[in-house]
Every structure is written in C-alpha cells, then in structure tokens.
Design a protein around this nucleic acid. Structure first.
Lengths: 224, 224
DNA sequence: GTCTGTTTGAAACATACGTTTGAGATCCGG
DNA sequence: CCGGATCTCAAACGTATGTTTCAAACAGAC
C-alpha cells in the first residue's frame, strides 16, 4: 500500500455505516472493525468522532462544491444575462452530481442519505458546520432560485425550498432503496440518475404551484 | 392524583424529549428525570425503551387513525361515487390532524416531528411497526391516491409518493423549525397548520406534473 | 387491622461507548 | 544502519446507557 491508506479506509467504512445506520447509532468499533483498522486510529488521525463525521462530509463536499461552481458558471454563460429557468437550475445539481468523479459504484446515493441525516439527526452542530463551510455555493444556488421564482413570496419560497430539500434527501436516504441499489451492483449510476430525472419535474412543478392562500382564522369544529 | 399517572407522565416527557433530541439521543434517565419518576418505572410499566417508543406512537396514532377513517368516510360520502380530487385527499390528512383532541398546546407539531424521525432515524424497526399497526388507513390512503392520479404510470406514482412523504417527513422533522415553532409559544397550532397549508399545494402540483420522460442512454461526458 | 397484589424507591448490574495510554512496529532520510 | 518521527496495537480508563433486583411503601378487600 502506498502511504497511510488507513485514513481512507476509515473514511470509506464510516461513510457507508453512517449512511446505513445514522451517526450516533454507528460506533467507532463498528467503523474500525469494517475498515480492518485499530480502534485508536480514528482518534489518532481525526481527533474525535465528530471530527470524523465532518471529514466524511468534507471529502465529498469540497470537490463537489468546485464542480457545482463550474456548473453554475456554465449555466449563467449559457443564459447570458437572462434569468435561468427553474428546471435548468435544478438540473445543474443533478448534472454536477453525475459529473463528480465517483469513488465507488455506490456513488452519490450514499452521500444524499448522509446529507439528509445531517439535517434531521445531529442536533445542529453538523448542520451549522455544513452551512458555514459551504455557504458560497449554497448562497449562489439560493440566489438563482430566487431569480427563477419571482412570483413567490419570500415565505412561500423558503418553505418550498425546505420541501424540495426534504423530498430529495428523504428519497435518496430511503435505506430500503439504498439496499436495493447496493444489491444490483451494476447500473447504480443510472438508477440514481433515473430517480433524479423523476424528481426534477416533481420539484419544479411543486415550486411553481400557485401562491399559497392562507385563510387566517380557519379552524375546524371538533367532531361531535 | 387519581390513579397511576406515572404512565402518562412518562409518556408526556418521552414524547417531548424524543421530539427534541431524537430517540437514541434521549436516555431513560432524561425521561424519568423530566417526568419526576423513578428510573425503574419505565421498565416496569413498558418493559423496555423500544416498547416505550412504540407506546408513545400508539397513544397518538390509534385515535388518529380512527379520526382519519371518519374523514375518509366523509370524503367519499361527499363525492358520492366520483373519484375525489387529489387536493381533497391531501387536505383530509391535515384536517384530521386538526380535528384531533389536543393533549396540550404543543399539540400536533411534536407528533409530526416524531413521525418524521420515525421514518429517518430508527433503522426500520419503528417504521415496520407503524406500517403493520396502521396498515388499514395507510392502504386506504394509497388507494385513494391511485384513483386520483390515473394518468400516472405505476412507477412514477410510486416515486412521487416517496417524494411527497419525503417533503412532509423532512420538513416536519427539521429540528430548527421545531425550535422556532416552540419558541413563539402562541400560535403553535396555526404554525403547523400553516406549514401544512403551504405543503398541500406544493405536493399536489408535484404529483400532477407531466409524466416523466426518460431518455434511456443519456449520459454526460466527464469534464475535461 | 391484616393480608395480598401492585407500584415505587435506591442501588447495583452488565455492557457499550468515546477516548487515552504507552509500548511496539514501521518507515525513511542521513 | 541508525535514529527520530510517524503510525499501529492491545489494553485500559471513565462514563453513560438499558436493565434488573429486592426491599419498602401503598392500595383496596375482607
């Protein structure tokens, strides 16, 4: 083995186990066992379990944000001043994901699951880390989204972005689907891209639904 | 105190703590501490922590599924043979939630968060429990959904239901949103209903988006 | 009041966790 | 071939967890 591949073996095992079981349900002993590495290696190389979690994200997210930045450049160059269509903005995300150099055939599905977990589990510390560390592409995406949906109120747009994120993260994170994907090892990329292809029209249509009408005082009477 | 209210105190505390912190991040000592109850009481009354979790769900979900059944009856009576509109089917869910007898002012928001967690955390055992225990209203909802979207292929419908579930569960399980909701103590119920009111048009529009066109061989070339 | 079944209480149990330790192995430039 | 830095290893540490134990308190029936 070239250099210390212990670090990568730990990251590979951690990534997979975190995706399968969640963060706090995955112990360092499971990780080091799967990675065939000594238990102390995690604390030696990463410092703590939390730092390991962040490293797992950084390994994927840092190159991805570079790729995403280029894709945004392309999009804006293509449209040359005109505001981009919503569908195109969403497609940029899936295309960037597809463009990413894949580390394994599991590909991006594992990572989507992790992103979803980061937003539901882990009482905020990981979420804060991600939003601080990758605020640049995140903010750029938000700005594009705002330009593409000028008819929406800020509140509606905020919530609908939440809905989009939820549909995406949850679908990708469905452990059953993940298991299916992992089982038929071939055609994994196309499966994920197929899901993405189905997801984009759904999200775009939801995003462009008519502005929500709130009836303030509406309250149902209790059942007799 | 009338009879053994220990059980209810445990359930109340557990419900709130689970919603705030997740299941495995909440210890029995936190629960019994908040409930001002002896530690052993949980194992005495419920048997195990997992059984406690299921009891928390059952306390809410059992009456809810009754209410939901009535709401479905109403819907079908109202439409008298004609197939119900998609928006109406989705609205039945939120209306049933609003109709529920509220146990406290926190109301249904806590429970929505729990449902979201049940589908993202807890490696399947809770999800299986819920789907088995409440398969009747679940199946009825699916059947109505199928009738309301005859234009969709089975595959598209399957995925879009996943998307809807994801958007809902994720949004409801977002802990920051919950904190915001809990912070402004007044108007909690309306807040959750407001989210639901914004969610329904989004979901309905996404569900009724044009059938997905799959271009089979499409594959992006890697970046140079 | 006394007895019987139910519920509570403080303490202990066994286990699993993240982390630390210190000695040994391994590597690589000199 | 040596010597200092880097890395691995088995073992232990301290703490937290879910669960169990068993005696004490309590309840209602007779």
């Amino acid at each position: 083995m070239a250099q210390s591949d212990t670090v990568d073996r730990i990251l590979d095992a951690a990534e997979e186990l975190f995706a399968e079981r969640g963060f706090s349900e995955t112990s360092l002993r499971m990780i080091t066992g799967k990675a065939k590495v000594n238990l102390a290696a995690v604390n030696y190389h990463f410092g703590s379990k939390n730092a390991l979690i962040q490293a797992v994200f950084a390994r994927f997210l840092t190159p991805f944000s570079v790729t995403l930045g280029k894709s945004f450049d392309d999009l804006e160059a293509r449209n040359a001043g005109r505001r981009p269509e919503l569908q195109d903005i969403l497609a940029v995300l899936t295309e960037s994901a597809a463009r990413m150099p894949q580390r394994s055939d599991k590909g991006i599905s594992i990572f989507m699951r992790l992103l979803g977990l980061a937003y539901t589990q882990s009482q905020g510390h990981l979420r804060k880390f991600l939003e601080q560390e990758y605020s640049e592409p995140f903010g750029r995406f938000m700005r594009l989204l705002k330009e593409a949906t000028p008819q929406l109120s800020a509140v509606d747009r905020y919530w609908r972005i939440q809905f989009m994120l939820g549909a995406t993260a949850f679908t990708m994170s469905s452990s059953d689907a993940l298991r299916d994907i992992l089982q038929n090892k071939l055609g994994v990329e196309t499966s994920v891209q197929e899901i993405a292809a189905r997801l984009v029209p759904f999200l775009a249509a939801g995003m462009q639904a008519e502005q929500t009408l709130l009836v303030p005082g509406q309250r149902k009477a209790p059942v007799a």
